[in-house]
Design a protein around this nucleic acid. Structure first.
Lengths: 147, 147
DNA sequence: CAGTATTGTTCGTAGTGCGAACCATACTAG
DNA sequence: CTAGTATGGTTCGCACTACGAACAATACTG
């Protein structure tokens, strides 16, 4: 009986918790998690489909469907690439940008207050270790830094 | 421009990473993440549907469907409760138990090696902080401790 | 210019998750 | 005891997710 969970169990449970919070914020904005992720990823700059595939870790057919639905909601737009006649880039519309921004802000708030039960220095330690793991594994920027 | 990400961004990316690893292990065992989670949750003891609803944070209709599919694969069994004529408990079959055990072991290995890029003391620190967050928020045991 | 590689889409399939409606059993009050 | 209510689960319809195979169109290469 470990008085403390192993790293693995802690990671899985922490992930479960973050997912819950993330999904809840999504809901409040009429988004699903994959849709929110798409908005976050194209916030910084328009991205090609072929570029989004490795970033979001989806098959291309899955991505087509996701972009279809998000485009139908008017948050994103497909633009033909001038350099490559086959390629398509995905960019935010004005309303998509507003939504992405408020979503990002609120998700950030919720997650910050989630860890705020700990003293600030512990938070900082935690954040830097998380960053270390993440950068060690080349995790794509699925959530933007502060605006 | 933060030279380090905020806690929120770190959490989201870490979650993305863990999800990727978890999903990959699931795939190798012919499982989906919700199915694996169900197996993990009923590993320790049979559980009632009504008990699984808050644990897995699903609506009861979603849970019905999930249990249907997992039962159809032969990994889980519905048993009528003797005390309450309305209630049903979900328990592992023999093959379900074997599957749950090998899945758990492999997921644990993969997650451990994911953090093994850091020195052991950092891992320990990280694990204890993760535990702290998790227990502060009453996250259900969606992943069992060592067998 | 022919052959090949890349970029996206379409289609079919299985699974996920929700809410509303519903049934059966349990509980509770008169 | 019996009506009314609460609880435990299922069913149904819906939208969404994700995959792989097949395909079309454009780009590249020999």
């Amino acid at each position: 009986m470990p008085e403390e969970l192993g790293v693995a169990a802690g990671l899985v449970r922490l992930t479960f918790l973050v997912q819950s919070v993330y999904a809840e914020v999504c809901r409040e904005h009429g988004l699903t998690p994959p849709q929110a992720q798409l908005l976050c990823v194209v916030t910084d700059a328009p991205r090609r489909m072929s570029d989004l595939v490795p970033t979001m870790r989806l098959e291309k057919s899955s991505l087509t469907g996701l972009v279809d639905r998000v485009e139908r909601k008017g948050w994103v737009r497909r633009v033909a690439s001038p350099e490559d006649g086959r390629a398509v880039t995905v960019e935010l519309t004005a309303s998509g940008r507003r939504l992405a921004e408020t979503f990002r802000a609120q998700a950030t708030d919720r997650l910050n207050e989630m860890v705020a039960c700990m003293p600030p220095d512990v938070c900082t330690t935690f954040a830097s270790i998380a960053d270390r793991i993440v950068s060690e594994h080349a995790v794509p920027a699925v959530f933007p830094d502060a605006s």
